[in-house]
Design a protein around this nucleic acid. Structure first.
Length: 355
DNA sequence: AAATGCGCCAACCGCAATGGA
DNA sequence: GTCCATTGCGGTTGGCGCATT
């Protein structure tokens, strides 16, 4: 099963190399060259497979290896080459004398990826994280609020289903601000239909398709693709009408709802709509800190919540043409990979709780 | 001092490519 | 053309050492 034939032979050593083994291998190759690797261990007196000997030589014993930390120049070169070549470590290594593919790969995975993320750069695409996250969010937005989804519920008796239809007519983004309910779980909005397939089936299927669809097709005629520069994105976010009824709030509803209820209750301790918060940024901050303190470590919710909160920040920014730095920072902080990976799990979990 | 968590990195694994019989 | 040994590559694992609790 892929294992080299020599590895089936009896009692071959595995794991870390001892100094004695290193010495035997080094002495043998210095005198004779490696020749055929499969015969090296026997000739050198080692209880290892040829593959293991080759790896040890290439990654550690070779005399032309450069030791120590990567220089700034090397670091920049690796990033540059990775942008051009992707994970072709052996090709990248040919451009860095004295460095092995394994060494570069480890350096990339343990250090450079994080560095790039901290700078707001997606280490896979080498593009700004903000752009890719907004794209992801916009895919969710327009798919979930499309008229096709609303129509496919098969029932518009539920006021929440009606709101979806209205939403899809007037603009694809948000529930109408006139709804008198607090943020509820999104699943509730679709939950009253007895028709088949169930709405949850459709949504789960929708979410699944999102994860494989690289370039979404707009499902409504009035869908406006997300603009791709900062100034336009700022204006785009400023067109969003309400902070308390977003489809995101619904989707990440458990925590938003909880937070909203804690902070916005009437005298009877019942939740009320957040009509009176004029300062959206302050509201968003409160929600954000609440969710941060109360998030489930299992779902990694913080990463999911941050981009949405960032939109509130963004929307509440002055009409300046420069991007809202706080929103940008939040987006940068949110790990886009965690976001993507957990999104489906989180959504399904949310539905399962409510249906 | 012991337990736990975490990052780093050497080495392994499985698969693909290559080359010789 | 086929088979099989060997080499090369990239993803993944596991253990070590350090930091934190």
């Amino acid at each position: 099963m892929g294992r080299h034939s020599c590895c089936f032979k009896q009692k071959l050593r595995k794991g870390l190399w001892s100094p004695e083994e290193d010495e035997k291998l080094l002495n043998y190759i210095t005198r004779h060259g490696h020749g055929c690797w499969s015969s090296v261990p026997k000739l050198a007196g080692l209880q290892r497979c040829g593959k293991s000997c080759r790896l040890r030589w290439i990654n550690y014993l070779r005399p032309d290896l450069k030791r120590g930390a990567f220089s700034q120049d090397e670091e920049s070169l690796i990033i540059e080459l990775h942008a051009a070549l992707g994970n072709r470590w052996s090709q990248i290594a040919t451009r860095l004398p004295g460095r092995t593919d394994n060494e570069i790969k480890n350096f990339w995975n343990s250090c450079l990826k994080k560095k790039l993320r901290r700078k707001g750069i997606d280490p896979t695409t080498h593009k700004p994280l903000v752009t890719s996250e907004l794209q992801t969010l916009n895919v969710i937005d327009h798919k979930l609020t499309s008229s096709e989804v609303a129509k496919s519920t098969g029932s518009i008796n539920n006021p929440h289903d009606q709101s979806m239809v209205v939403s899809s007519q007037s603009g694809p983004w948000w529930f109408p601000a006139t709804t008198t309910t607090t943020n509820q779980n999104a699943a509730f909005c679709f939950s009253s239909s007895n028709t088949t397939p169930t709405v949850s089936d459709q949504i789960v299927s929708l979410i699944s398709s999102m994860s494989t669809s690289s370039s979404p097709t707009p499902m409504t005629s009035n869908f406006n693709p997300a603009p791709n520069n900062w100034e336009q994105q700022l204006n785009y976010c400023n067109t969003v009408p309400s902070q308390s009824n977003s489809i995101y709030s619904a989707f990440f509803g458990n925590h938003y709802t909880e937070a909203s209820q804690v902070m916005n209750t009437n005298n009877n301790n019942n939740p009320v709509v957040d009509h009176h918060h004029q300062d959206m940024k302050s509201w968003a901050s409160e929600i954000f800190h609440y969710t941060e303190q109360n998030q489930s470590s299992e779902t990694g919710l913080e990463a999911e919540v941050k981009p949405d909160i960032a939109k509130y920040y963004w929307r509440s920014a002055s009409s300046s043409s420069s991007p809202n730095q706080e929103a940008a920072t939040l987006l940068h902080d949110a790990d886009v990979e965690v976001y993507g990976k957990n999104l489906q799990k989180l959504n399904i979990m949310v539905f399962d709780q409510s249906l």
